[in-house]
Amino acid sequence: MTEYKLVVVGAGGVGKSALTIQLIQNHFVDEYDPTIEDSYRKQVVIDGETCLLDILDTAGQEEYSAMRDQYMRTGEGFLCVFAINNTKSFEDIHHYREQIKRVKDSEDVPMVLVGNKCDLPSRTVDTKQAQDLARSYGIPFIETSAKTRQGVDDAFYTLVREIRKHKEKMSKDGKKKKKKSKTKCVIM
């Protein structure tokens, strides 16, 4: 069974824990209790493949930012979460993405942009803004509501699919490099 290491990042209060708990335990946590770091595991079937999701729910508070490099190193894919009623959390996505790329030393890291709290009427981040940002990053965008469960499975499952595509691409690139290195030079 394939294991996928997913990391949920975003500013404090955007609903990272609520999304994760909704996926794992099928219930909505409405009281806000700032996370330092929590880890969850769940076995699911995605596109006919049974897999184990190892999900790291991270601290959004700035005082825990020193811990970010460590979990970013171990993560295979990242859910970059903002709240649709919090423009600052949307603007912060850029910083999370840049930090992930720096730590992973790669421009090509599996990510999904997630606009959470889409059940709320007080939207300050337009869907088109988020779609445009995701398009500019070359990553999928999904709106979710941890409260109603809308888009929750889709967000995590899409990230797994992005990781699969990335692994497939990397193995193809690896095979191309191996083929090239088999060419021999004969000096007579």
Rank of each mutant, 00 (worst) to 15 (best):
V109Y: 05
V125Q: 13
P110L: 02
K88D: 11
V81R: 00
K101S: 08
P110G: 01
V103P: 02
N86W: 01
S106F: 10
S89A: 08
I100G: 01
S65Y: 08
I100S: 02
G77F: 12
V125I: 10
G75M: 04
F78S: 01
C118Q: 07
M72P: 12
R102L: 11
T74F: 07
K101T: 08
Y96W: 15
D108G: 06
K101M: 13
F82T: 15
G115E: 05
R97Q: 10
R123G: 14
T74H: 12
Y64G: 03
A66I: 08
D126P: 07
R68L: 02
G115S: 08
R123M: 13
T74P: 05
V125R: 10
C80P: 00
V109C: 06
E107T: 11
G115N: 04
V109T: 05
V81L: 10
K104F: 12
C80R: 01
G115Q: 07
D105F: 05
T124F: 09
D108P: 05
D108E: 09
D69N: 09
D126F: 08
Y64R: 02
E98C: 03
D108L: 05
E63L: 02
C118M: 11
S89R: 02
I100Y: 02
T87G: 13
E91G: 06
L120T: 10
T74E: 14
S65V: 08
R123D: 15
S122M: 10
V112S: 00
M72E: 04
K88L: 09
K117E: 13
A66C: 14
D108K: 06
M72T: 04
K104D: 03
M111T: 03
F78L: 03
D69T: 09
V112Y: 02
V109S: 03
S122Q: 09
D108W: 05
E107R: 07
D105N: 08
R97Y: 15
K88A: 14
M111G: 01
P121G: 14
F82E: 01
S106C: 14
V103S: 05
D119F: 01
Y71S: 14
F82A: 15
R73G: 11
R123Q: 13
N86F: 01
P110W: 00
L120G: 14
L113K: 00
D108F: 07
L113G: 01
V81K: 00
C118P: 07
I100H: 02
I84D: 15
S122E: 13
S65L: 05
V109H: 02
R123A: 14
P121A: 12
H95A: 12
K117H: 15
P110Q: 02
Y64D: 03
K117R: 13
A66G: 14
C118H: 07
G77T: 03
Q70T: 12
V81G: 03
K117N: 14
T124N: 12
I93R: 01
K101E: 10
E98A: 06
R102A: 12
E76A: 12
Y96G: 01
P110S: 02
E98Y: 00
Y64V: 02
T74R: 13
R123C: 13
V125S: 12
T74V: 09
F82M: 14
R102T: 06
S122W: 08
R123S: 14
D69W: 02
T124H: 11
F78A: 01
L79T: 00
D108S: 08
R73D: 09
K104W: 14
R102E: 05
Q70R: 15
I84M: 15
G115C: 13
E63T: 04
A83V: 03
S122A: 12
V114L: 10
L79M: 08
D105A: 08
N116F: 01
G75L: 03
V112P: 00
E107D: 12
I100C: 03
E98N: 04
M111N: 00
D119P: 01
